[in-house]
Amino acid sequence: MNDKEQQGNGTGSTSAEEDRELVERAQNGDTRAFDQLVRKYTPKLYGLVYNMTSNRDDTADLLQDIFAKAYRSLSRFLGKSSFYTWIYSISVNMTLNFLKKRGRRVILSLDDVDSGIQNDPDFIKATTGHSPLRDVGLHELQKRLNEAMMKLSEDHRTVVTLYDIQGLQHSDISKILGVSEGTVRSRLFYAHRQLQTYLDDLVK
């Protein structure tokens, strides 16, 4: 399993089976089973929604709406796709709808940064030597990345979030968004090119 797979659904068939079992129990009225699904998917969906909205309060509200809708619609989930794809599709659609309603009113808020980042090889590599990142603080970096992300269109931001941050594969992203893999690759290409312009001083 490659790096993307580990970071993506990251779970393999065992997790899919576990999900199926939890979904069946939840469909039969076991609310604890649904709570388990919420616990399992909250960190991933939080990352998705937060990176699309760049606002913590909006993220918290949206996650509530997403799980409430998922609970209401659970009886209609037939298991044709994995629960993971299904819940991601709901999350992306609801977040995109929210962004359309919110329009240009954007209040950026920064999340806490895991101290594990200090040990991340990419971070170490990026912040040592002659890299421009060396002189940039973690919060400054976070702020710059968030600002650059918010300059992207919603469609481009979605694929960047799912691919670069969440680590999903092209095929999974195409299933979640309901577009072809070619479209996903094309959006990624243009999004990266735009980000290259916005973050030019950090990637030199």
């Binding site: 919420v38 939080y46 806490d112 990026a126 990345l145 670069d164």
Partner: peptide, 30 residues
């Protein structure tokens, strides 16, 4: 260039949600 951007964006994985967020979310959902 593409890899550099991807590597930079990957650093956002270290952003984490507030402590106790999951419990609070489940409580509010109930």
């Amino acid at each position: 260039d593409d890899n550099q951007i991807s590597r930079l964006l990957a650093l956002k994985r270290y952003e984490r949600m507030p402590e106790g967020f999951e419990d609070q979310l489940i409580h509010q959902l109930h």
